[in-house]
Write a protein that binds this DNA or RNA. Structure first.
Length: 170
DNA sequence: CCCTGATTCGC
DNA sequence: GCGAATCAGG
C-alpha cells in the first residue's frame, strides 16, 4: 500500500483530530501503526499538544445536528412473552420500529470506534454495539475498555444512563 | 500486558 | 521514502 495523496490527506486529518497512530492505521488499512508514525514524522506533523507519549487520545467533536430518524429492528419485548420457534417467528413478523435517536450534545468528545466484529473482541475491548445487529454494518466499538467495565470510558458512561437518555454515537 | 509516540536503520 | 524493530513511557 502506497501513500497516495488521498491517504496522506486522510492521515493529516485524522492525526489533527487526535486519533492515535494505531487507530489511524486501522482506518487507512494496509499499514501498521509504525508506518503511520513514520509517515507522520516525515511529514513533520509530530507534536500534537502533549510532548512525549501520552495514552488517552481521540478527540472528535460531535456534529451536533437535529435529531435523526433511524430505523431499528423490532422491539425485543415483542417476543419475551413467548418461547421457542413461535417467539422467533413473532420477532421477524413484527413491524420495524421507527424512533428518534438523539445525537451527542455539542462539545461532547466522541471516540471513533474501531468497529470490530464479534470474534475480534478480547477481554479488554469495548463491547458497545454499533449499528443494527441484523445488518452488515453491525460492529462493536472495540476501543480499549476499562479495567472494571466491558466498555471504553465513553461508552461506560452511556451504559449507565437510563436507556431513555442514552445518546448514540457511531 | 495493554497501550502510546519516538527513534533508528536496513532496505 | 518507507516501516519493522526497538525504545521509553503511561
Amino acid at each position: 500500500m502506497n501513500w497516495t495523496d488521498e491517504r496522506v490527506e486522510l492521515l493529516r486529518k485524522l492525526w489533527a483530530e487526535g486519533l492515535s497512530a494505531s487507530q489511524i492505521a486501522t482506518q487507512l488499512g494496509g499499514v501498521s501503526r509504525n508506518a503511520v508514525i513514520g509517515k507522520v514524522h516525515r511529514l513533520k506533523l509530530s507534536g500534537r499538544g502533549r510532548a512525549t507519549a501520552a495514552q488517552p487520545r481521540a478527540k472528535k467533536v460531535a456534529p451536533a445536528a437535529a435529531p435523526v430518524k433511524v430505523q431499528t429492528r423490532p422491539a425485543a419485548r415483542t417476543i419475551t412473552a413467548t418461547v421457542g420457534a413461535t417467539a422467533l417467528a413473532a420477532q421477524f413478523d413484527a413491524e420495524p420500529v421507527v424512533h428518534q435517536v438523539l445525537r451527542p450534545i455539542e462539545d461532547v468528545v466522541v471516540p471513533i470506534s474501531r468497529n470490530l466484529s464479534l470474534i475480534e473482541l478480547t477481554e479488554r475491548t469495548c463491547k458497545w454495539p454499533n449499528g443494527d445487529p441484523l445488518h452488515d454494518d453491525f460492529s462493536f466499538c472495540g476501543n480499549q475498555s476499562g479495567e472494571s467495565s466491558p466498555y471504553c470510558g465513553y461508552h461506560a458512561k452511556l451504559a449507565y444512563q437510563p436507556a431513555s437518555e442514552r445518546r448514540r454515537a457511531r
